[in-house]
Write a protein that binds this DNA or RNA. Structure first.
Lengths: 149, 149
DNA sequence: TTCATATATTTGTCACACTAACAATTGGTA
DNA sequence: TACCAATTGTTAGTGTGACAAATATATGAA
């Protein structure tokens, strides 16, 4: 029976994802980056895509709306992001980086790449392609599964 | 430069791990399992290893001590686990499942395996071995990295 | 014995994920 | 025009993760 064997994937996946985040967060803290790993993800995506709404950004980074609201609250408080009222739709905001935010992204970008590289010691590009393929397959297998009863 | 490319792994890893957890938690809820995914991990490990201390259990499931304390608080409140004072060492407890806890594990075990299987559609055992190898390599690359300065 | 050190667990704080409920606004339709 | 369903974003509640610090007990050396 391979069922028992396969079931271990969730444990290993969770354990590794936590370790990756924990390692990066330690390095962030050690280098006084002044942002968390998740906050960095938001800053980076805002720097690569100008003037998104929160919904657009949420879809881009695969975070839900309440989580994004709170991360943005913190980034606004730190002065890296601003919520600009949307000219046509008064329900929504256009998000953009402040000058401080832009400077922060410029400063951190190379440092983050260096931190991320550590995980791939002893692994090559073929491994990466395999890894990507399997992760995406799992994601798609579970995505959009409607529950009915 | 492959640096940028590689850096995407953390995003995909995090995204997939969250999806896996979210999917399982939905199914748990839908089936009225009365436990969360993390609580299930604890129950399962307690059923496979009798009379662990919290420290031993924490090492087994790779959760830190405060997190484990809180999960156990909930499981005790639900009546699935008991903390029995260690006969020799008054600092520690021996954990064991109550009768309800044992029944819960028996009830849920096949259901959880079925839920877990969903992720591996379109993937085979070779994929699983590759996946395991890469995850474990990443974990080891980042584990035990001491920070100094 | 006494003190320093180590170990087991708990508590507090902050951040994030998910659900549910809510307010405000928009846009289609009767 | 007057509804009403859908959309955008927020808030509250619960669970979990990481980290630091506190508490209690144990152990070993002086």
């Amino acid at each position: 029976m391979t069922q028992e064997l396969f079931a271990r994937y969730s444990f290993l996946l969770d354990r590794t994802a936590r370790k990756v985040k924990q390692y990066a967060q330690q390095q962030f803290k050690h280098g006084d980056f002044d942002v968390t790993v998740d906050q960095w993800l938001i800053l980076k995506n805002l720097s690569e895509n100008g003037h998104l709404s929160q919904t657009e950004l949420a879809n881009l980074v695969f975070k839900d709306h309440p989580t994004l609201t709170r991360i943005l609250d913190l980034l606004c408080k730190k002065g890296y992001v601003e919520r600009v009222p949307h000219p046509q739709d008064r329900r929504s905001f256009q998000l953009h980086l402040t000058d401080n935010g832009i400077a922060k992204v410029t400063e951190l970008k190379p440092k983050v790449l260096e931190i991320r590289e550590k995980a791939w010691e002893n692994l090559n590009e073929t491994d990466f392609e395999e890894f990507k393929r399997i992760l995406n397959t799992i994601y798609q297998n579970l995505d959009g599964q409607i529950l009915e009863e």
